[in-house]
């Protein structure tokens, strides 16, 4: 079970980091601000996933990072919402 969680949450971290890097790369190439906001969203989602990994895999009983995880996810979604509302029109 621990191995399964390690793989699952590890993939979540890698996927969100990959999305973040791809979006920053695209922003550097096109300078479209929608991509910048999306990349910043994935920065927060990466932080969220790293915290999730630490919280549930590395230190499952020692700490409770839920408030920090939720805050990071909220911040990420706010970046994305701002980008889609103000830049995609």
């Amino acid at each position: 079970m621990v191995t399964f969680e390690f793989i699952l949450y590890g993939f979540a971290v890698l996927t969100s980091l990959g999305c973040m890097l791809l979006l920053f790369r695209a922003y550097a190439a096109t300078a479209m601000r929608l991509l910048l906001w999306s990349a910043l969203c994935f920065v927060c989602l990466s932080i969220n996933n790293v915290l999730l990994f630490v919280d549930l895999v590395v230190l499952p009983t020692e700490v409770d990072l839920r408030p920090y995880r939720l805050f990071a996810a909220l911040a990420g979604l706010l970046f994305l919402l701002y980008g889609f509302i103000w830049e995609a029109e």
Binding site: C19, L22, R25, S38, A88
Partner: peptide, 12 residues
């Protein structure tokens, strides 16, 4: 183009 650029960003 903006939406297209968002989709294109994920092309490796």
């Amino acid at each position: 183009l903006k939406i297209q650029s968002f989709a294109d960003a994920f092309k490796l």
